[in-house]
Computed example of a mutant assay.
Amino acid sequence: MTLNIVHLVGRAGSNPEIRYFDSGKILCKFNIAVNRRSKKEDQPDWFELEIWDKTAEIAANYVKKGSLVGIQGSLKIDTWNDRNSGDKRTKPLIRVNNLDLLGSKKDNDNYSNSGGGGDF
């Protein structure tokens, strides 16, 4: 049996970027910051999200920098060859299957207007 499920709750660190393809596919990417459960003031962990099709459109329309979101998806490792050096590069990202818009519009607006301070 294999299992690859990721659940995260965090705040969008950037506004979503959306791409439309000739095939009709839609891709949305943005990152989220997720705090660890610790008493220390650690820096958040950052995760890049990859969202496709209808869920991508929803993310592009409703998520803004600072929005609180919950996601469920799977870990994916992107692999490519560096153009300059030819070295193999890898980058982890989360392919999102389900996106939950958390918090109220007022909460997300207040967070964005305050400069993004406080806990993630």
Rank of each mutant, 00 (worst) to 15 (best):
G115D: 10
A56R: 06
G116C: 05
V69D: 04
E57C: 01
G66P: 06
G115H: 04
L99T: 10
T79N: 11
G66E: 11
N84I: 12
R83M: 07
R95T: 14
N98I: 13
I94D: 12
T90N: 12
S67I: 08
E50K: 08
D109H: 04
V69W: 02
Q72K: 10
K88M: 08
L49W: 07
G116M: 04
N84Y: 03
I94V: 15
I51T: 07
I71V: 15
K64C: 10
D109A: 11
T79S: 12
K76G: 01
G70Y: 04
R83P: 11
Y111H: 11
I94P: 03
N61K: 14
S67R: 03
S104C: 06
L102Y: 03
N81W: 01
D78E: 15
S85A: 05
N110R: 07
E48I: 02
I77H: 11
G86K: 03
R89Q: 14
S114G: 02
W80I: 12
K54H: 13
K88V: 13
G115N: 06
L93T: 08
R89N: 12
G66L: 09
I77C: 08
G70E: 02
W80C: 12
G116Y: 07
K106V: 14
K54L: 05
K88Q: 15
T90F: 07
L68P: 02
Q72F: 02
K105N: 12
D78F: 00
D78V: 01
L75Q: 12
N84P: 00
S67V: 08
G103K: 04
S85H: 06
N108S: 15
N61Y: 00
D78W: 00
N84F: 02
N98V: 12
V63F: 06
L68I: 10
T55Y: 00
T55P: 01
E57Y: 00
K65C: 03
A59N: 07
G66K: 03
K65P: 01
L49A: 13
R83A: 15
K91Q: 14
V69Y: 03
Y62N: 13
K54D: 13
N81S: 09
L99Y: 05
V69K: 04
I71W: 01
L99C: 06
K88D: 09
N61L: 09
V63Q: 05
S85N: 02
S85R: 05
G118W: 04
L68H: 09
R89C: 13
G117H: 11
